[in-house]
Simulated assay, not measured.
Amino acid sequence: MRRVTPFSPDAIGAALGSRLSDVQLLDTFAASDAEVVRVRLDGSETTVIAKHATGAGAAAARREIAFYEQLAPRWDHPAPRLLGATDDGESVLLLTEDLNAGGYHAPGPDVSDNQLHGAIDVLAALHREFWNDVPAAELEQSVTSTAQAWPPEVISRNAAAVRAEAARFFDAATELVDAERSILEEIVDGWENQFQARVREGRALTLIHGDFHFLGNVFFKEADPRPKVIDWSELKPGLGPHDLAYALSVVPSDDRPTRDRALLRRYWEALAAEDYSWELCEWDFRFSLISNLFQSVFQHSVRWYRVSLTAIETLDARSTLTDRPPISGG
């Protein structure tokens, strides 16, 4: 009797709904709370991406399955095809289309203008589909949880989590100077209060991807500006511009304020939400840069913490902690 391991022929075959005699593990990918591999099926040229998750990772994988089954059918989504899945209650195995086999690749920071425009159009389509129609899901604490805007009570819990995680991060990040550390302490209270004020009326919110970046979650095919996007486990109610602010954090620019404002304007025009003023869109974008800082804390990344501090300063994001959210703008 063959032993059933997470990526055995029996396990993969059960998820696909077909019998396999052999699978070959080709590549292993870095992932939090999951094992992710590329496998070749039965010695053929067919490859798939297999994700095996337990514990908190299983909860994330179940959210991704729910996305495919309940949300993806609502619009022309950019996710790779779901090929199969199994869930035994303790672990989840998720199989999806291998984008690399189809000629797709993650561009990293060297994303082109056409690719940026394609990514913005995809984000606008996602956010437009779920505009003011978001599930009130409460997600487990994660790197991207501080971007969650609804229900309102999660904001205070996430702020408390930031304070607790910052203490651990700063203990380990000895290279950070006092001035760099103090900025987080100065802004977290204001962020919590302003986020509560922003979402109080429950309007101009949408479903965001939550982890939209060009370093490994957004893939392009040559000559096709419309990307494919993976890792839908961090979907959450949020501020639409957050996804764009997070994506642009890894893309260098000689004049970031001008570049970001032009791309944000393209996003706002593509979104075409009648109840969403340009002033509020700009405010949401700059406010989201602060949420990006908190994500670097959960990642324990000194590099991205400093990148986020620079963005906050360059784009005057701290003014959103004192300026009232312009939610009444038309």
Rank of each mutant, 00 (worst) to 15 (best):
141 Q>H: 03
60 A>C: 03
135 P>G: 08
146 T>H: 02
130 F>P: 03
148 Q>W: 00
64 E>M: 12
102 G>F: 10
89 G>M: 15
43 G>H: 05
150 W>D: 07
60 A>R: 08
43 G>N: 10
148 Q>I: 02
133 D>P: 00
51 K>D: 05
124 A>Y: 07
68 Y>K: 07
162 V>K: 01
63 R>T: 06
80 P>R: 11
154 V>I: 05
93 L>G: 08
77 H>S: 15
72 A>K: 10
151 P>Y: 00
140 E>A: 05
66 A>Y: 02
154 V>G: 01
156 S>G: 15
108 G>Q: 10
141 Q>D: 08
182 S>D: 09
134 V>D: 01
113 D>A: 15
92 V>A: 02
107 P>T: 05
122 V>Y: 03
152 P>K: 11
50 A>V: 08
93 L>F: 08
137 A>G: 03
134 V>H: 15
65 I>F: 03
180 E>I: 01
71 L>A: 15
45 E>L: 10
184 L>Y: 03
150 W>G: 10
141 Q>V: 13
174 T>M: 02
153 E>A: 04
113 D>N: 14
66 A>G: 15
48 V>A: 11
55 G>K: 14
113 D>V: 10
78 P>C: 11
92 V>W: 05
56 A>N: 14
113 D>G: 15
127 H>P: 04
61 A>R: 00
98 D>Y: 07
48 V>G: 09
157 R>H: 07
79 A>I: 05
45 E>A: 03
72 A>Q: 01
183 I>Y: 00
150 W>L: 04
149 A>E: 00
182 S>T: 04
112 S>A: 07
74 R>M: 09
104 Y>V: 05
98 D>N: 09
58 A>W: 12
79 A>L: 11
96 T>F: 08
52 H>I: 06
178 D>N: 09
146 T>G: 02
106 A>K: 06
120 I>H: 09
53 A>I: 10
166 A>H: 00
124 A>M: 06
44 S>F: 11
93 L>K: 03
142 S>V: 00
67 F>R: 02
173 A>P: 05
118 G>P: 13
127 H>S: 04
53 A>C: 12
178 D>C: 01
